[in-house]
């Protein structure tokens, strides 16, 4: 009864936003991770690796990308003060992220649909652009999330951001979070790709990459924890407070270890579940650390929220929309689930 009473429309919307960010990381994030492995494709099966990545991403990336749009739309509809403050104080990293998003998507499509004389020459150029922007964009997403979590975005009495446009994000902590985001996305992609090619030599390539990225996730998580000491002390304090926090950390750590063990033993189905759980737990941990603030240190979810007359209809629209969206999204994955294996060679 007690926690149910506190379940306001604003909190519900915040929950839906967190869910779409998690889904974006698990799907769209892995698409970025695929681009990272395209950049780092090496060894005798280099071409095969790149082909597998392209095939896995092509039918789904545009749909996966919409999770980010949903999260942003919910942010400006339901928490307009937070959206305005992020757009103002983090103008530079947001712009950099957008340039990455634009170039990544178009380079991928231009490469896939180029034709005629010189297409294979141009494809090399597009591959380079696609791979580099797939690496830079997640770092920028992480920088934005890290800057928000660190609590550098403050508002004046009118609700406008007080900022010099630089200091909120130009610091070690946001960039460590950026690197962590990149490692997580890369790990997700490698695990998915290993599973899609289970039983083939290609799976070995991606298994190795998943293990390396997983190691990097552990190291960067630790570095982030250290950097939070000075970079985000309030967040760190909140992450240590209460049983709930420790449950989330426990799940993240446990799932991370399970990921290693299952990857080592080539149980890719389990590895995928473990890594997805780990990513989810890390993101929920951050959401937990930020709660009840949408912009720490002083803009709470309640204070930032639009009136209930906005939130309640939006929640109903979300529910109604999901009834159509969920089966369609599921069908998309179902149709292309076996794409990697069937086309494997």
């Amino acid at each position: 009864m007690t926690w149910l009473d506190q379940l306001t429309p604003a909190l519900l919307v915040a929950g839906v936003m967190t869910a779409s960010v998690v889904l974006y990381a698990l799907t769209g994030g892995a698409d970025f991770g695929g681009g990272v492995w395209d950049l780092l494709a090496t060894g005798p099966r280099r071409k095969a690796q790149q082909r597998a990545i392209e095939r896995a991403i092509a039918p789904v990336w545009e749909a996966n990308h919409v999770w980010l749009i949903i999260a942003v739309v919910l942010l400006f509809v339901c928490f307009p003060k937070a959206y305005a403050a992020i757009g103002t104080a983090l103008h530079i990293p947001v712009t950099a992220m957008l340039v990455g998003v634009i170039l990544r998507g178009t380079a991928f499509t231009f490469r896939a649909y180029d034709t005629g004389e010189g297409a294979s020459e141009r494809a090399k150029g597009w591959t380079r652009v696609f791979a580099i922007t797939s690496t830079v964009t997640p770092v920028m997403l992480g920088v934005i999330a890290g800057a928000v979590a660190a609590g550098g975005l403050t508002l004046d009495a009118e609700g406008r951001a007080t900022t010099d446009f630089i200091s909120a994000w130009w610091a070690p902590f946001p960039f460590v979070i950026g690197a962590l985001t990149l490692a997580l996305f890369a790990q997700l992609a490698a695990v998915y790709l290993a599973l899609a090619h289970d039983g083939q030599e290609l799976a070995e390539d991606f298994r190795l990459r998943a293990l390396l990225a997983g190691g990097l996730v552990f190291i960067l998580a630790w570095v982030a924890w250290m950097a939070a000491e000075t970079g985000a002390p309030q967040l760190k304090a909140r992450l240590l407070a209460g049983h709930g926090a420790w449950v989330v950390h426990g799940i993240a750590g446990g799932a991370g270890l399970l990921g290693f063990v299952t990857l080592w033993r080539r149980r890719y189905g389990w590895a995928r579940a473990a890594v997805m759980l780990q990513t989810t737990a890390i993101l929920l941990g951050q959401a937990w650390g930020q709660h009840p603030f949408v912009l720490p240190p002083n803009l709470t979810i309640t204070a930032a929220a639009a009136p209930d007359s906005v939130l309640v209809p939006v929640l109903w629209a979300l529910l109604a929309g999901s009834v159509v969206l969920v089966p369609a999204y599921w069908a998309l994955y179902r149709v292309f689930r076996t794409a990697g294996r069937q086309a494997g060679d």
């Binding site: 545009e62 509809v77 307009p80 906005v310 369609a328 999204y329």
Partner: peptide, 28 residues
């Protein structure tokens, strides 16, 4: 956006869903 975002939220939210479905159908 700070003032207008919530007011025009309904068409933008619905657009989010329509665009999502468009991307899914296009992939299919």
């Amino acid at each position: 956006m700070r003032h207008a975002g919530p007011i025009i939220g309904m068409p933008f939210s619905l657009e989010g869903f329509a665009f999502f479905l468009e991307a899914i159908f296009l992939g299919l």
